[in-house]
Design a protein around this nucleic acid. Structure first.
Length: 534
DNA sequence: AAATACCTCAACCGCATTAGC
DNA sequence: CGCTAATGCGGTTGAGGTATT
């Protein structure tokens, strides 16, 4: 599609009434609405128009780009009179007017590519779009959020078996370090590279889990038990649980992906399919047992990487800032099902049993602060996440356990020094992307705890409006205010994404530095926890 | 036929990063 | 080095459409 056709298309849609709907839903300010009218605008001063673009606006923008080229979007308004902010112009151009855009539904090939890319990158829509000529990040994002999630809700696996296999094979070697199988994941591997003991509890936990004969799938239980419980556990974890509502309307995509049904393994978004996770299914995949453990959602959080390869290990670049958890988060937008999944896991009926892993983890005696850097900002965020996890997953009864086992806050702070080492390693590697995804560096050095003290007061990470609050959260015991400030600007560690970014217990064979992260995370867990326990 | 539930997707928002001064 | 503007990115929203009851 060339520029001219863009304009023609825009114009035709205008005359054909294609814009009527959009126009009606425009977000104009009332006064401007009158001035500009349907299908046009008079730029200039005054408020910028919001809402759907009209064909006339499109034409203007296309014309502008034709003359001046892309970029300098804020100048569009000045030069063309378009009453749109630069951002809006850029978006419109990128998502709709660009001549190289490919219109229409995704082809099967593209869909497969998206699946694969998502497995590798997580919610890196822009990067994914770069791999799909003619497609936009928004398009891909929407695709994922709708079609894919629909499958999820229907209890269908998102990733095709073939993809799972590929991922598995591709990572088989790297998995040696931590397939999450009891043996493979043994911390010994990790310990070799640094003198830091990693609690093996996680793996023990797995073992334990595997011994479970059966864990009821989410479908096995009454909806009420899934959704009506634990309103006290914040909805922050909604994203872990797709709405398991039976889809009322089976659609094409569901059919389409039925063929994936046999694959119970989810790569990155490994956790996406709780709905159909059953122990039996998982058992069908020797070697994948751990990551797929349906029973262990909590542990999944920590292990997601391994198979998945998820976003980090899989492609070796681990650049995905949103490894598993991120993906999961995206796939299970709490906002869509706000009322349903509050804390279903803490209950006996929960298909996500859980907290065991956390408990074990916490009880591990191995965590010992090695260094003593009292000023470590990052220790608590992860902790909180974990603590919250525990709370969400197991309920408050575990609090005592946590309290008993956690280290002191200072100890945690000490561990932060390891973070520095970690980052240094990365810096040396010259890889901007740590294996931990969205910058291990930031994760390790900048992340900060947010709302460290309140498990109960934890707010949903799903709510963007919470950001400010989170950042203002009192965190702490770290005297260095400047560092704290910096940290506060970083990603909220309480978000699952952060956890995932750490590649918790995942296996990044390529970068053993992960161990630091893991250890740090554990350290954070143990240390901060103490302050947060009620 | 009406009500309801759910889906789609364009567009917005906020934040992070980068570039320019 | 700090500030500001521009740009990019990911998450979220919400109107309208469609399927179901």
């Amino acid at each position: 599609m060339n520029l001219q056709s863009c304009i023609l298309t825009a114009m035709s849609s205008m005359t054909s009434g294609g814009d009527t709907r959009k126009i009606s839903k425009g977000r104009w300010s009332s006064s401007l609405d009158e001035k500009v009218g349907v299908g046009g605008n008079v730029g200039g001063e005054g408020p910028l128009k919001k809402g759907p673009w009209t064909a006339a606006e499109d034409a203007i923008l296309v014309e502008y780009v034709k003359k001046h080229g892309q970029g300098n979007w804020n100048a569009v308004q000045k030069h063309s009179g378009l009453a749109r902010c630069g951002k809006s112009c850029r978006l419109r151009w990128a998502n709709h007017l660009r001549p190289d855009l490919k219109k229409g539904a995704f082809t099967a090939e593209e869909e497969n590519q998206i699946l694969e890319l998502h497995a590798k990158m997580g919610n890196k829509w822009a990067r994914m779009a770069a791999e799909l000529p003619g497609r936009t990040d928004n398009e891909i994002k929407n695709y994922w959020n709708t079609r894919i999630k629909r499958m999820q809700r229907a209890g269908l696996p998102i990733y095709p078996e073939e993809l799972c296999q590929r991922i598995l094979n591709g990572n088989q070697e790297s998995q040696n370090v931590g397939t999450m199988t009891n043996e493979a994941c043994h911390h010994d591997d990790l310990s070799q590279t640094n003198n830091f003991d990693i609690p093996d509890v996680e793996f023990k936990n797995f073992k334990f889990r595997h011994g479970l004969p059966h864990v009821p799938s989410i479908f096995d239980m009454p909806e009420s038990s899934l959704f009506d419980q634990s309103s006290d556990s914040s909805h922050s974890y909604n994203f872990l649980f797709p709405t398991m509502r039976p889809t009322k309307r089976p659609r094409e995509s569901e059919m389409l992906y039925d063929s994936f049904g046999s694959c119970s393994i989810n790569a990155a978004p490994l956790f996406d399919q709780y709905g159909n996770y059953t122990f039996e299914k998982i058992s069908d995949h020797p070697g994948l047992s751990l990551p797929c453990d349906p029973v262990l959602n909590t542990t999944d959080q920590f292990h997601g990487d391994n198979l998945t390869g998820s976003h980090a290990a899989l492609n070796g670049n681990a650049s995905a800032s949103v490894p598993i958890f991120g993906a999961m988060k995206l796939e299970l937008p709490s906002l869509q099902y706000p009322e349903t999944q509050h804390g279903s896991w803490g209950t006996p009926m929960s298909p996500l049993p859980s907290l065991e892993s956390v408990d074990t983890l916490i009880q591990s005696p191995t965590l010992e602060p090695i260094l003593s850097d009292p000023i470590s900002p990052q220790s608590s965020g992860l902790l909180e996440a974990i603590v919250y996890n525990s709370k969400s997953l197991k309920g408050s009864n575990n609090d005592l356990l946590l309290q008993e086992t956690i280290a002191t806050a200072n100890e945690v702070a000490n561990i932060s020094t390891l973070n520095h080492s970690f980052q240094t390693e990365w810096d040396e590697l010259g890889d901007p992307n740590s294996p931990l995804g969205q910058s291990a560096a930031s994760v390790l050095t900048d992340y900060t705890p947010v709302r460290m003290c309140s498990v109960d007061g934890y707010q949903s990470t799903e709510t963007s409006q919470d950001h400010d609050d989170k950042h203002e959260a009192p965190t702490t015991q770290f005297p260095d205010s400047s560092s704290k400030k910096k940290i506060l600007k970083q990603v909220d560690y309480t978000q699952p994404d952060a956890l995932l970014d750490l590649g918790w217990f995942g296996n990044n064979t390529k970068y053993e530095s992960d161990q630091f992260v893991q250890q740090d995370a554990l350290g954070a867990l143990f240390g901060d926890n103490c302050q947060h326990q009620p």
